[in-house]
Write a protein that binds this DNA or RNA. Structure first.
Length: 270
DNA sequence: AACTCATGCAACCGCTTTAAA
DNA sequence: CTTTAAAGCGGTTGCATGAGT
């Protein structure tokens, strides 16, 4: 398992390519093909290592490269393939004609990964995050909120905040915040995801598979997606009147037992 | 206008895999 | 079968640019 020598050792040029170098490489490959990348630089009159030339060609100079913004469809394809293949950028790139593995990798790292994280999904598993670290800021904020509520509200609220016993199974799921209004089948959560335009693809795989990959509630995680509580506040402000008058049973805030819609403190607080 | 910070992307590094001797 | 060279691949870095202060 030998390693190709580093460019430094041979005094070869590194760093950004000049237009002149690009032209030399392009001209040589168009005329002769790339053949052996090892010998190409010398033959093409370039003071670069073969590796650098190959990279420049495959990621930039190749004539079939499609440049510019990724389309919605390409985005969905990447998300889908990444959920199946993981960080196999070259494998993903084979399904996106004109896109290089490097380009896809960059797009993933700078856009898609961040968006998944923001939505509370683990970018590697595509499932809601379960790690305590990721949840910590929100847990702290909620703990502070709870403390304030305990101090200001009736004793029954304090009682209600007592942690459930270990055999409380289902009830524990409502212990952590989620601004996606939850129904028994989680449909609203799915709808909300679709509205974001992020997780909405439906092609390629069986519905069951995708439902599993992008499950929000009850998808094998005890922790719902992490969200900004201000979203919940806004949603409550806008929906509280109709919710109370129509007898809407599902609180827009998490932990309805702690944050009852008709509690004057809660409505004032929000 | 000057500075700082965040973002996007091209390119490099080093490990793994493949193929040839 | 073993060794070695070359290619492939994914992770990471560093620079250019734009936005915000």
């Amino acid at each position: 398992m030998g390693r190709s020598p580093c460019c430094d050792e041979n005094g070869l040029k590194k760093g950004p390519w000049t237009q002149e170098e690009d032209e030399k490489l392009l001209h040589y490959i168009q005329k002769n093909g790339h053949g052996s990348w090892r010998t190409l630089p010398r033959l093409a009159g370039l003071n670069r290592c073969g590796k650098s030339c190959r990279l420049r060609w495959t990621n930039y100079l190749r004539p079939d490269i499609k440049r510019g913004k990724f389309s919605q469809e390409e985005e969905q394809t990447i998300l889908h393939l990444h959920s199946v293949l993981g960080n196999k950028w070259s494998a993903i790139a084979t399904h996106l004609p004109g896109r290089t593995d490097n380009e896809i990798k960059n797009f993933w790292n700078t856009h898609l990964k961040k968006r998944l994280i923001q939505m509370g999904f683990d970018p590697m598993t595509h499932r809601p995050r379960t790690d305590l670290f990721a949840a910590l800021p929100q847990l702290i904020a909620l703990a502070a909120l709870r403390e304030q509520l305990s101090a200001l509200c009736s004793p029954q609220l304090t009682a209600a905040t007592t942690a459930p016993s270990a055999d409380d199974g289902d009830r524990q799921s409502s212990y952590l915040p989620c601004t996606f209004p939850v129904s028994s089948d989680g449909q609203e959560a799915a709808n909300q995801q679709q509205q974001t335009g992020l997780i909405s693809y439906d092609g390629g795989r069986a519905a069951g598979d995708d439902a599993d990959v992008f499950a929000c509630h009850g998808g094998g995680s005890s922790l719902p997606p992490l969200t900004d509580l201000s979203d919940a506040a806004a949603s409550m402000r806008s929906g509280s009147a109709t919710a109370s008058s129509s007898g809407f049973s599902c609180s827009p805030l998490p932990w309805p037992e702690f944050f009852p819609n008709d509690d004057p403190f809660i409505t004032d607080f929000l």
